[in-house]
């Protein structure tokens, strides 16, 4: 009985985890980011900085991109938790950022987006 409950719970977690990692769905979410941000081996800074190797990098650190002082001095290192908070309301997390984006509220879509972003290492290669 006890082991049945556990495996049932694990099954549910496993399912939601599988949904959470849908990078293909994340690519579609990224379509709205693409107006300003590029990904991949040919990615350049444009209206926004490129997002290759985002997780683990320090905010305001991409060479050649002209950040707002707010972003540059935020002291943030991008990990999943802080990105999750940021993307829901960028101007609440970093007041004074010049990123004009109202925010992504849907948790599933945030999960998908993170999965998509995580595919690219710092050189833009898909892992």
């Amino acid at each position: 009985m006890r082991s049945f409950v556990l495996s049932g719970a694990m099954l549910i977690i496993g399912l939601s985890h599988a949904q959470a990692q849908d990078a293909a769905a994340g690519e579609k979410v990224f379509a709205q980011c693409r107006a300003c941000h590029q990904m991949g081996e040919n990615a350049k800074n444009a209206v926004g900085p490129h997002l290759n190797g985002l997780f683990g990098r320090t905010a305001g650190s991409v060479e050649g991109y002209n950040y707002s002082p707010a972003n540059k001095n935020s002291g943030i290192t991008w990990d999943e938790a802080v990105f999750r908070e940021y993307i829901q309301n960028p101007r609440a997390k970093i007041p004074g950022t010049k990123m004009v984006y109202a925010g992504l509220k849907d948790e599933q879509r945030i999960n998908d987006l993170i999965a998509y972003l995580k595919q690219f290492d710092a050189t833009g290669k898909k892992q």
Partner: peptide, 13 residues
């Protein structure tokens, strides 16, 4: 200047 990060025009905020 290369793009709108460095040639800054008015943004909504």
């Amino acid at each position: 200047q290369n793009n709108f990060d460095s040639y800054e025009v008015t943004r909504i905020d």
